[in-house]
Design a binder for these strands. Structure first.
Length: 195
DNA sequence: GCATTGATAATCT
DNA sequence: GATTATCAATGCA
């Protein structure tokens, strides 16, 4: 069942936690790709120094985060890689959830075709990797997961086992917010980017 | 370990 | 308008 608007219109951390176990569905050139979300991070705009929208900063890029929950926020990092975020909360409050790891369920051969990767788990165990595997690029920025025919999220009733809270990755510049345990992952799942 | 890469935002003239 | 510092990472050595 496709997740509806109300799922996304909540506080970022709650959305991040509940996105674990949900399925990311992608229509890619006639193929249906499905992957279960196993790792997320929450970024809470106004107060969070690690967020692009810290102190409610509004720029052309961050504008997407101010849309209501359910939209995709996709940006280029390190000049080479795309990162996929799900916008949370209501209009005007820039919360976002970074998807860091997914487990392929369907169309894995197509995903491997989009990426040159040798080891099994390296296909989708990182934010840049999973974007490549699912054919997600910056032109998908601003797409609405609640209505798009090309990409959306589903709930198949799966309930994650033990969920771990941890520090977020790659935000050494964020001062005290470095310490916040706003990263969530399913314990023991091999598609998590790092332990 | 370390090089890669280009959009973005801040800081200048 | 031009210049520069920075970066929610990856892949190869």
């Amino acid at each position: 069942m496709r997740l509806t608007r109300e799922f996304y219109r909540r506080e970022g951390r709650q959305v991040a936690r509940e996105l674990l176990g949900k399925i990311l569905v992608r229509n890619y050139k006639g193929s249906v790709l499905r992957a279960r979300i196993v790792e997320t991070e929450a970024y809470l705009g106004p107060e969070d120094r690690a967020s692009h929208a810290w102190k409610n900063k509004r720029t052309e890029r961050t504008e997407t985060m101010y849309l209501q929950g359910g939209h995709l926020y996709i940006y280029l990092i390190y000049g080479m890689y795309n990162c996929l975020n799900v916008v949370a909360s209501v209009e005007g409050i820039p919360h976002a959830v970074l998807i860091r790891g997914v487990e392929p369920l369907e169309g894995e051969e197509v995903m491997r075709g989009l990426r040159n990767c040798k080891k099994k788990y390296e296909l989708t165990n990182g934010p840049g990797k999973l974007c490549m595997a699912l054919g997600i690029e910056r032109r998908d920025n601003g797409v609405d997961l609640a209505t798009s025919p090309d990409i959306w999220l589903e709930d198949d009733g799966y309930v994650p086992g033990e969920v771990v809270c941890a520090r977020r990755v790659g935000i050494e510049y964020a001062g005290d917010y470095r310490e916040m345990l706003w990263r969530y992952y399913i314990e023991g799942n091999p598609w998590v980017s790092r332990r």
